[in-house]
Simulated assay, not measured.
Amino acid sequence: MPVSVVRLATPRLILRRFRDSDAEAFAGYRSDPAVARYQSWGTPFPVDAARAFVREQATADPALPGWFQYAIELRSDGGLAGDVGVNLHENRMQAEIGFTLAAVHQGQGYATEAVDRVLTQLFTAAGLVRVSAECDARNDRSARLLERLGFRREGLRVNNTWIKGEWTDDLLFGLLAEDWRRSQ
């Protein structure tokens, strides 16, 4: 089965399929303890695991249920800045979204730009009705980003996740297509 071309663009970014050449940079930012702090993976993140991930994503299809990760490439230098993951639900009408950005690229609006572009794809071309997200309740920056993009805080699950030797609270967010359209 042929692999579909995946390319979304913004003025500063290209969101594309991962390439073999991304594995070291991917492992690099995922190995940063500050980046991994609120994520499910531990550090260091092995290059072999990054290569396996890249191989897996090479055949993933964003139109099929399950996770698809967009690589975030900087137009300015072609470097890998991070990734945006979309977990399309079996009903193909809703999805969960997540994002990770290398520390050196945080605080410059890249994550907001990338997630906004993926939301546009999901609500227009894919015709989704709802996109959800969750984050560790201590992750203020991610929560603020979601709220900036129009997500509504829908709940708090107290002591919901056991991760890295501690219980953490999860914030739940949702964005409906009709609300997203009104904000455009």
Rank of each mutant, 00 (worst) to 15 (best):
W41H: 15
P46K: 00
S31W: 01
T59C: 14
A23H: 01
A52W: 01
F26W: 14
E24Q: 08
S40Q: 08
S31E: 11
Q39P: 07
A63P: 01
V47L: 08
G28E: 04
A52Y: 01
A63S: 14
A27P: 01
P44V: 02
T59E: 15
R30N: 14
R51P: 08
R19G: 12
A52H: 09
S31T: 05
V47W: 08
E56C: 07
E24C: 00
S31H: 03
D61A: 09
F45I: 11
A60I: 04
E56F: 07
P62Q: 15
D61G: 11
E24P: 02
R37P: 03
A36I: 03
R51F: 03
A34R: 12
A60L: 07
D20A: 14
A23I: 03
Y38D: 08
R19L: 12
Q57T: 09
S31Q: 06
Q39Y: 14
A23M: 04
D48N: 07
Q39T: 15
S21E: 08
A52M: 02
Y38H: 15
Y29I: 00
S21M: 00
D22M: 00
P33R: 15
V35I: 05
R37Y: 12
L64R: 12
V35N: 03
L64N: 11
Q57Y: 06
D20M: 04
P33Q: 14
P33K: 10
R51Y: 01
A60Q: 13
G28T: 10
P46W: 00
Q57W: 12
T59L: 15
A58W: 05
R51Q: 14
Q57I: 05
F18R: 11
A49I: 12
G28N: 00
S40D: 10
G42I: 10
R37E: 13
D32H: 14
R19E: 10
D61W: 04
Y38G: 10
A49P: 04
L64G: 04
R55A: 06
V47F: 03
R51L: 08
